[in-house]
Design a protein around this nucleic acid. Structure first.
Lengths: 262, 262
DNA sequence: CGTGCTGTTGAGGACGATCAATGACGGTGG
DNA sequence: CCACCGTCATTGATCGTCCTCAACAGCACG
């Protein structure tokens, strides 16, 4: 399930170590919280299957979805090192989900034992930041049509990156609305417009993407910002002990990691 | 200049080590690029003084500002571990800036020698992600009046967090427009409306915040999401060598870091 | 067979964009 | 010192996108 970690540059022993510490948890039904707002458990959740969303509840009862999460994603990296501040955000299941948990203690220890894992967490955090920038740009500057197209493209691309290539859209209209910063009503109209453009088709209840290239062109979507998520695989990690430690320093000699691109 | 690093939990020796590797660079004039788009130098830039912005140029000549940066901020954390992908973003000076640089090699080495530094980078990345979430929420859900008020509040608060407490706004109208996703024209109208509400005053060329609490109330601004940036100061980092390494493993014994809140 | 939830359609209105013109200011060079 | 130009700020008029409110249809659920 976790070839995702490979994609961010973790070596094999690191992956095995992490997997051995994962405890498979319960399944979660649609619309249920995986990580509740204001709650700080002593473990982190990893999504094994399904789609989840990082969101914030709004005073008026609506919610803003910040990002979607797919199989292999850590649900709450953000929560770990900035303890108090993320009280307001939560993670909910968008489709039925299967999650695993890992205790914070285990994760801390693993990150120390496998430097590549620590680097991977940093990379994941920056990856999340990039997704957020894309969404910010989309909401701030683009039309509703482009915004929705963008979300559909991103959804397809990220589904593919975890091995599920289907043109069917697993997101409901109101999910799209919460993510794109639009009304469910207007999402409905926009989807209909996309059908008129022969980019989308509706089979009974669910939508299917018909013209993926057309959709990408409309949204100015360049999937490379997602691929690079796995691009760092080419990074080689060389470890060799270096005698940099001063005498009398309790700190052990640290491995020097030489990062270089393929 | 860099008590900022303290605020994210770096110990004193780590800070000294980092500072010793910094090379003070040239001053940058307003509107000039600090980090050009698509350019990947072999060093990172740190802002010593002034205000910069992380932005993306748009095809129509406009730009979207993703975040502002203040003294002590790394200008391009995002660029380091996701090499190819951030071609499109750049950093520009919003006021005259003074920067320092540190070579990627030195920074990599320092992060290995001082685990707290590596943790700090991760924390900074997550801090950036939180700022982005706030902005995304603001652009997606709030009115122009609230958006602008929010940016003003954030600006004041972050200026304070680096020791510059002044109610004067150093941002130009078009900077605010690019950040809030609004037109410069509408920013002008909005600022005037804020003056009508007795929240803002204009002294000739520059704006001054008159009623800070009122602004915060209008924008639903809770500065705690910025404070926590320095809240992790309470984290204690304990280092002690642990004999976890397998025999024959070339990897040296790694320090085990026990993170606990105050 | 009701009861929700999701999606659809219509009419009206608000917010902010767009276009265009003007004024104020600061810097530059004569 | 003043004339010039470019940038920034302002104002008015108009227009388009998207929200709001309201009613209704379909499907899944008990």
């Amino acid at each position: 399930v976790q070839e995702k970690l490979e994609s961010v540059g973790v070596d094999e022993t690191g992956i095995r170590a992490l997997l051995s510490r994962l405890r498979v948890g319960a399944g979660i039904k649609r619309s249920e919280d995986i990580v509740a707002a204001g709650h700080s458990p002593a473990y982190s959740a990893v999504l094994l299957d399904g789609i989840a969303c990082l969101y914030q509840g709004l005073p008026d009862g609506n919610r803003q979805i910040y990002a979607f999460q797919y199989a292999g994603d850590f649900c709450d990296i953000n929560r770990r090192l900035l303890p108090d501040a993320n009280k307001e955000v939560a993670v909910a299941a968008v489709t039925p989900c299967l999650i695993a948990t890992i205790s914070d203690i285990d994760l801390d220890r693993l990150m120390m034992q496998h430097p590549a894992l620590a680097t991977a967490m940093l990379r994941l955090s920056m990856f999340e930041a990039r997704l957020l920038r894309k969404n910010l740009l989309s909401v701030a500057r683009w039309s509703a049509l482009q915004r929705v197209a963008h979300h559909l493209c991103e959804h397809i691309a990220r589904q593919e990156s975890v091995g599920k290539s289907s043109t069917a859209i697993a997101l409901s209209g109101s999910d799209l609305a919460d993510a794109a910063g639009l009304t469910a009503v207007h999402i409905s109209r926009t989807l209909k417009e996309l059908q008129g453009l022969r980019l989308l088709a509706k089979m009974g209840r669910t939508m299917k993407v018909v013209d993926r290239k057309g959709l990408a062109a409309l949204a100015d979507f360049d999937s490379s910002y997602l691929d690079s998520h796995r691009l760092p695989t080419n990074w080689e990690v060389e470890v060799d002990a270096r005698p940099e430690t001063k005498a009398g320093d309790r700190r052990a000699a640290l491995p020097f990691i030489d990062l270089r691109t393929s």
